[in-house]
Structures are given as structure tokens and as C-alpha cells.
Write a protein that binds this DNA or RNA. Sequence first.
DNA 1: GTGAAAGCGCTAACAA
DNA 2: TTGTTAGCGCTTTCAC
Lengths: 351, 351
Amino acid sequence: MVETGRTGGGRASTMKDVAEAAGVGVGTVSRVLSGKGQVSTATRERVLAAVRAMDFRPSALGRGLKLQRTNNIGLIVADIANNFYGEFAEGVLSAAKALGKHVIVCASGEDPATEREYAEVLLQQRVDGVIAFPTGHNTDVWQGARRLGVNMVFVDRIVESFDVPTLMVDNIGGSRAATEYLLALGHRRIGYLGGPQALTSGQQREEGFRAAHHDAGAQVHESLVVRTRFTRDTAYASALRLIHGRPAPTALFATNNVLGEAALAAVRDSGMTVPDDISLVMFDDVPWAGLVTPPVTVVAQPARRMGVEAARLVSAPDQPAPGRPRVLPYEFVIRRSCRPWHEPDPLPGEG
Amino acid sequence: MVETGRTGGGRASTMKDVAEAAGVGVGTVSRVLSGKGQVSTATRERVLAAVRAMDFRPSALGRGLKLQRTNNIGLIVADIANNFYGEFAEGVLSAAKALGKHVIVCASGEDPATEREYAEVLLQQRVDGVIAFPTGHNTDVWQGARRLGVNMVFVDRIVESFDVPTLMVDNIGGSRAATEYLLALGHRRIGYLGGPQALTSGQQREEGFRAAHHDAGAQVHESLVVRTRFTRDTAYASALRLIHGRPAPTALFATNNVLGEAALAAVRDSGMTVPDDISLVMFDDVPWAGLVTPPVTVVAQPARRMGVEAARLVSAPDQPAPGRPRVLPYEFVIRRSCRPWHEPDPLPGEG
DNA sequence: GTGAAAGCGCTAACAA
DNA sequence: TTGTTAGCGCTTTCAC
């Protein structure tokens, strides 16, 4: 039989309804459902039968109001369509499920105003905790949240003068590994395509880049250090500018997957080839990294695992708040997007 | 100053607190905050001042309980890390933001038990609506949900004998376009790598595939029709089997991005080249489709727009429930993964 | 082992 | 214009 039309808000049944149907008090229904307190087997059966018959589902609203706890957590990412955040979110959802929590997901687009708006919303929703990739701008709201007893976990970014449990990948190490690899191959003009310097992850990746140069006694060409926003258009424009910069870079280090995508497109559109004309390394091991020709050497972040960790951290507030961020290891995955580089002789035949 | 340590659950202030601070009744505070009813400017100022001073945020729990409406909607996708669902979710989030709604995201992994579990959770949360890519199995729960007045929107799959507003891309048309394209290039042994036939989208894509063959007077090689689950491993194995099937396929049609990824990997691992040895078309215009060599010809779904539409539909229950699904247009994007195919002469030198 | 009742924070109806 | 109050659905204490 085909059910047709909309039935309009049929009222959901309540504990009171169930109690009446089972001929008991609401307290008893609650005890049965929560498993707390003693209930005789006979009454339990009657209650359970009524619950099934009425298709009763206890209201999380009433429960939350009484308990002052919702089992909901908020998640604020920059862009859920970006594979890195997608994997991260997958990890959060999966861990949350295991912990009996539910996740309200928000996308800030890296915009402080949007972040603030969502923070307000999540606080009104009385979430037990929030996991955020903070823009770094709305410290007052976040401070307030913490004061209210909302468990917080920040990911990827350290917010100054504000000691919140923070999770990040070893950005400096990953960046250093990538850069050392290029330097070892002989590259001395490495283009750096980075994100906004406001973000901790951006700062750290640049720090690793510089440290590797320093240790190798190599010089960073400041004209080849470009910072850009994570939108496709601006990233592409910046990549183009970098590729055609002076001195001409022999290798490119893109510090996330959006920038890597832009770099690859820009290289190709410039009629150049990876790795023959220019080598390429990037952060983030997205699916396409191994699929393009040549497959791209990457610094892989354990995105899913970071999500799992974040969900656990936000649900276990008893742990001592670590003074310093919890750092997860990167993995350097060498594929085929880099070639050794030897500076050509100044004038062929001479020397 | 660095704030240190956790403050523990500082109680959130309530309307009562604000009312006392402002020297008014709670009703007045409510009126000021909601903007409904008349309040003198002087009182309004006093109230607003108190609100700011106490950093008051009204509880969505109390409000929801009273109003029997939460402004929350549930979203159940299969896999949030899959770019298609990521784009879709992005659309939902963005439309929801504009509508003042908040989104609880769940990932079913196409598993009916998980879907059921999440459905229960969302109903307990008293969401106003839910957007789901249904597995097709838990009709009783969904029926119940509808009866309770929860607005529902299904995406991509039609659940039989259950008339819920449904949204999908023109699967038949898209599949037909892709197949016709391959047939027009001369291919007559086209491998079909499809998803589980339980899903409407799968059925329709296969239908389009067959219809195109029929119209062209071409024959579908049943040995080249393979259906597989969407996990990477099984998809890869199925792709391999398909590639080495008999008769040997000259082209491959993968019906989503996971299958397309598997197909591409399998082709390469078999030492073959796209499009010289085998042509490839797939559903879903993911970022890597244009990035690999050669770039892959695809049937693009308007994933983000579908998400926006779904969010609007679920928030506008007044609209007459359409008896048939709302179908959105695909876009066929021709890139360079297909070559014309001419059956080689039976014996060179003859004829 | 069970029922009655208070109260979580809010809105809306009613009274003043 | 403003204050008071009932009640949304639940948990928990207290009395029986």
C-alpha cells in the first residue's frame, strides 16, 4: 500500500503516554529505559510492551534540559568538500558514534564572522564540546565557551594566550622532510606556495622549510616564497606567479592539497612538465596524488586519525589539559614527481 | 594574560538571571530577545545591557521543548570523505545557514543497521527534518518519522511504496549520454562497472546503459556487466576482473567516482593505457578527473546544488509533495580519456 | 519496587 | 507595557 500525502505533525508520544498505557508512573518508565534503579521484571515487560506499541522515542530535548548535557558535539571545519576535512570529519563521526555522541557540523570557510556565528549557535545548542579549526579571531567567544564548561579541542592552529587542548600534525617536521628531500636532490631554487600566515599550520610549515634550508647551508629565495588564500582562483594565480618568478624555481613545495592542485594545473598550463621541468611536493595525501601522472610525492597527514583523536579528546575532559599541542606524526610518501637537479654549466664548453 | 586550567562547568546564565539583573520579568526578556510583542525602549535597553553583561545565550533546549521545533535537520550520507557527498554536504550546510537551520551529520556507510541507528538518534533529537541517501531498508522507521511530522527528503534513491519527496540527478540520461558517446566512437564491447543493484541510482544508470545499446542496435555483453560494492578493495578487484573479461572490453564505464578510481588504477596496473588500450568514462566530476593524464570524460552531477535543493525542500514542507522525484540535469564533460575504436580486420592482409 | 512531584529554560496566554 | 504562570518531556529525590 502506498502511503500518500503528508500527515502533518502527528504528536510524538511521551513518557506520560507510555506510563498511562502501561499503568505505571512516569518515573518507572524512565527507570526502565535508562536501566538505572530497580524495576520488577513484570512491570519492565509491561513498560517495554507499551514503548514498542507506541513507537516511543524519548526526547533528547527534555533529557538534555534536565541533565544539562546533550551528548552533542560541534565540529567547525573550514570546508567540508575539501578531502582533508572530509577525512577528518569521517574520523570524528566514527569515533562519536562509538562514544554515543552526535555531531553538528559547520563550515566556516576560514571566515572569522562565520566562525563566530557558528560558535554562538553551538553554545545555544548547549553542545557538550566543540572541535574546531579556529580562525584565531574569536577568542572572546571561545573563552566564554570554556568558562561555561564546554570542552574544546582546537586542531591545526594554536590560539595565543589561550590554553586549549590542541591537536596538530608535525608540520615543522613534515615540511622539513619535504624540503630536505628537494635539497638533497640538488634543488636550490625551491618555490614555496603557502597559506595565510595567520594560521599556525602555515607558520610552522614555513618554519620547517626555512630550517631545512638553514641546516643545509642553502639560501631561501624570498621572491619564491608566496602566501595565498585557499580558494581555487587565488591559489592558481599565485602558483602561476611563483612558477614564472625570478630566479626560476626548479622545484615547488605546495603546503596543502588545494595549493598542490593549483600548482599542478599552473605548471601544466605553462607548458611545463613534472618532474622534468619542475619538481613538485605537497602536503596532504589526497586520492588524486597517486593517480596523476607522475604520481605526486606528498607529506601525508593522518587526517582520519586526527578526527578520531579529536573526538576522543573532546569527550574525555578529565584528562589534564596538555600545556602544549598533541602532535601527530606525518608520513613522507615518495612518489615520482621529483627529479635530481644539477645547475647547468654557465657556458657549455668552458671550464 | 594566559588563562590556565579548566574552569569546570560554570553554569550558563538563564533568562531568570537576566530578568533579575535587569529588574524585569522573564516574559519581558523573552519578548526583547525574540522581537515579538511590545517593549518600551527603556526596558529593552536595560534588558539588552544585562544580556551583554552576563554573556547570555538562550538555550535552544528550553526553546525547542516549548516550541516543539528545533531548527535542526539531520543529514545521512554514505561517506562524508567521498567528494560527491562532501560537495553535497557543503551545499546543505550553506543553504541551512541561510535558513537559520543547523545540521546533524551522520555517515551510514550504506549499512542499513547504521542507518536505522542514526534515524532513531535523529528522531530522539527531534530534528525538524532529515535529508538522507536511504539504503532502502528501514522503511518502518522512516514511515514513523513522517507520521511524526518530520519533513523528509530522500536523495538518489527511490524507496518503494513510500511517497517521500525525492531528489536525483538524471541518471538514465547521463548514463545514456556516456554510453551513446562510446558507441558513437565505435566501441561495441563496453565494460560496465556498476554499484549494488539495490540502489535506484544503480538501476537507473544500468538502464541508461542498456537503453543506449538498444537504440544503437548494439548488444550488451552480459559478461562485461559487473556490479560491486563501493569499497576501494572490492571495486578494484571487480575492475580488474572486468578489464580481463571476455570478450575483452575496449571501453569502460564506471558509474561513480570510487569505481572510476578503481578502474583507472586497475587499467594502469594491468600495463594498459587510457585511452590507447581502453577508453574510460565515469560518473562524478571529482577534482582529480581533470588532473590525471589523460583527463577523464565524465557525467557530472551538480552535487552542491543538489545539497542546496535538498535543504530547501526539507525546510519548505508546504510545497505539495511531488509524486515523482525531482530530477536535476547532469552535464556530460568530454575530456580526453576516450578514443575511436575500429574493430581490427580479422586477419591482416586478407579481405 | 513504585508513584508523586519538583525543576531544568523557555514561550505564550492571561492578568494587571 | 509588563509580570506571572502553566507546561513542553525528562530525571531524580523522597516518601511510601
